Computed example of a mutant assay.
Amino acid sequence: MDSATLLLGLGMIAFVGSHLLMSHPLRPALVRQFGPSGFLGVYSLVSLITFSGAVVAFGKAPSGPQLWDGQALVPWVIASLLTLVALALFLASFAGNPALAGTDVSGLSTRLPHGALKVTRHPMMSAFTLWGVSHILVAPSPRSIILAGGVIALAVIGSRGQDAKKAALYGRDWRAWMKRTTFLPNPAAFASLGFYWVAALPVWMLVTWLHLKFALVPAGLWLWLEQL
């Protein structure tokens, strides 16, 4: 393994590990030490430094070998659809999502899931997971697997950690909510995203266009539109 790929792996371990540690076992001590606002500042700074280091290493790591042709029709179409779903889930995750930090969950045991919460109780983390899977599909190289795989690991483990922490904090309310919702996204409930499909499409076109202009790598429909 070359040095840049090794540094990328170490950077993602630091990013994921520090994120999980600060989110769960170290959080009470850090909040006592720095206060709520100071904790958010430390949390954000550590996450920014570790992820930025990983991104720099990613740029220096070799782009191959590729395990398969990520620009072939099937993986490209699947990945493009996954990123669109991920964006719709991400946008919808800000509406009445009890998994978000600071959200009031009192009486949650009496609520029925709606919108993105019919798809999964962790729409934001599911969006990050789908983003990671889509990027591995279209760029199945060691560096992409390490970077995107780290994001997937953080989203999945972080979601499990959220469930455990909120079940401990809110007891019956959160356990009842877990029974009414699913951990993994339920494709049969995608229609529940409603308006967010309409909102996601133009944002998806813009984001994939920016991906081409700034990362110099085509994404989504731009792989073919640029050739017209």
Rank of each mutant, 00 (worst) to 15 (best):
T83R: 10
S126A: 12
S63A: 15
L108T: 09
S134Q: 07
G70F: 05
L82E: 08
A92E: 02
F58I: 12
S134D: 02
A57I: 10
L137Q: 01
P123I: 14
V138T: 09
P98C: 13
I78C: 11
S126M: 14
T120W: 14
V138H: 05
V74N: 04
V133T: 00
A95Y: 14
W68K: 11
Q71G: 05
L112W: 09
P62Q: 04
K118W: 07
G115S: 03
G53D: 06
T110W: 15
H122C: 15
F90S: 02
Q71M: 07
A57L: 06
N97S: 00
G70P: 00
V55M: 07
W131L: 13
T103Y: 13
T110M: 11
F128M: 12
G107A: 15
P140N: 04
P140V: 08
A61W: 03
G53A: 02
I146S: 06
V55Q: 01
A72N: 03
L81K: 13
A99W: 03
A116H: 05
A92C: 03
D104W: 07
Q66T: 01
L112P: 04
G132S: 01
T110N: 11
V85S: 08
L91H: 08
S109C: 05
T103A: 15
K60I: 13
W76V: 11
A139D: 11
L87D: 12
I136A: 11
T129F: 03
T103S: 11
S63R: 03
Q71R: 14
